[in-house]
Amino acid sequence: MTTLANIPQLLVYGIISGSIISLGGIGVSLTYSILGFSNFAHGDFMALGAYIALGLFTLFTGLGIPNVPFGPLSFGFGFALAFVLAIALTAIAVILIDRLLFRRLRRSGPIILMMSSIGVSLGLRNILQFFWSPQPHYYSQAIQPAVAIGILNVRIKPDEMFIIAIAIALVVLVHAFMRYTKMGKAMRAMADNATLAQVTGINTDRVIIWTWVIGAGLAATAGILAGIENKFITPQLGWQMLLSIFAGVVLGGIGNPYGAILGGMVIGISEEVSTAFISTGYKPAVAFVIMIIMLLVKPTGLLGRKD
């Protein structure tokens, strides 16, 4: 019965990976509802963020900016600074991509945008590969011991608690933004009806920029957190997670950011728990199968509204 005894531990792993998938899913969901297309480059925005953080961190280490670990965590000030700056730089890079490509293609319709995002995906991934090679790069080589939390032999690393805490904090922040700020309300309004938003006098271009800031910022965060969890990053990091992210978004109800959070969590947990029964290699297939079942049962997803 070793497999059943492992399940609480796998659940914890699932919550960790679900946190990362959810952060990615929020961005996919926002772009879908506000800009009206499925952005297949979103995973690569995650990888971009992870590599920008790596580049900055390397630079800071070279400049002698200290990185004494914060308490039990594996990183300190230098990395944290790189983390925050990488979020901002990723958002700027994505806005530039929007100005260069997506904005010009908006009149051509959602399918052309989707196609363009596939080009962006492949282009970005290979730009990362060009500069950093396909080989893994490490944020930290130190081994961090996992600590027992005293329930059912479950062990968790301090870094992993940090990942979950950051995810929860960001979800709360995004919720507050969408609910209480004028720009957040305008984003919801534009998701409801983009033409009416324009007719009403909402500056839709600014709403789009904010959508990318939030989506890309969360993507960069997810990418860096995935790097902290796995200990290494590769240019494939985001693309490999894209199927899980989309499965989560579809499961929760495409276009609904809260659905993306719920769906991402369910997918993350299902993928990890499935390893007790089938080969680890099949994690993405588990996500795919859950998504297909959801589409057969209720295509609008768990929290979806009518399309």
Binding site: F37, S38, P110, L242, L243, F246, A247, D307
Partner: peptide, 21 residues
């Protein structure tokens, strides 16, 4: 079967999924 009644995005996602599987 599960995707062709829906917006074409779903087919796109499902085809990525089947290729990966």
């Amino acid at each position: 079967a599960p995707t062709l009644r829906l917006r074409t995005d779903y087919l796109a996602i499902a085809t990525i999924g089947i290729a990966e599987t």
